[in-house]
């Protein structure tokens, strides 16, 4: 058992337990944040994606040891931001949401992508979504939503 700290949604928090525990389980079981979903448990589907020091990472593959003193932002934290609001609106406008299970992960992937590349091409968007599986939409409407939000004039990214 170890007691460590990390930054969760911009607040310093404590975790006590085995440092091999998956961040996903800590978020869901210890902090009651269930916006990160388990879809596959092996880093393929991206439903559990979170921002780890501003970059997309699968929380199902991240041991707590990696998280010590690092910054983790989940969909719950991100959803309070202005950037989130813009992405949310664009996802709604473009019909990018069906069953919704992959959606928080898609939002995280979008933010991670736009952080690095504010005006991505369609191909770059596809690369950015390569680790997020969606079985409902065929991806087109998600891609359209990301193109649209990245072409906004207020330069959020």
């Amino acid at each position: 058992m170890s007691r460590v700290e990390f930054i969760l949604n911009e607040k310093k928090v404590e975790f006590e337990g085995d440092l091999n525990k998956r961040l996903l389980d800590v978020l869901r079981d210890d902090f009651g944040l269930f916006g990160s979903k388990e879809g596959c448990g092996e880093g393929e589907c991206g439903a559990c994606a979170i921002l780890f020091n501003d970059e997309i990472v699968n929380s199902c593959l991240l041991p707590m040891a990696n998280v010590v003193n690092q910054r983790v932002m989940t969909i719950e934290g991100f959803s309070t931001t202005k950037k989130y609001k813009a992405i949310e609106q664009s996802f709604m406008d473009h019909g990018a949401v069906q069953c919704g299970y992959c959606t928080p992960g898609m939002i995280i992937a979008t933010e991670s992508l736009l952080n690095k590349n504010a005006k991505p091409t369609e191909e770059e968007i596809k690369d950015g979504l390569a680790g997020n599986l969606c079985r409902c939409t065929g991806y087109n409407m998600i891609i359209d939503a990301i193109i649209a939000v990245s072409r906004r004039e207020d330069d959020l990214w």
Binding site: F34, G35, S36, T74, I75, E76, S79, Y84, I87, E88, F91, M92, V97, C99, G100, T103, P104, I107
Partner: peptide, 8 residues
Amino acid sequence: DNISKISG
């Protein structure tokens, strides 16, 4: 259900 799904 858009907003509840998108926001997790």
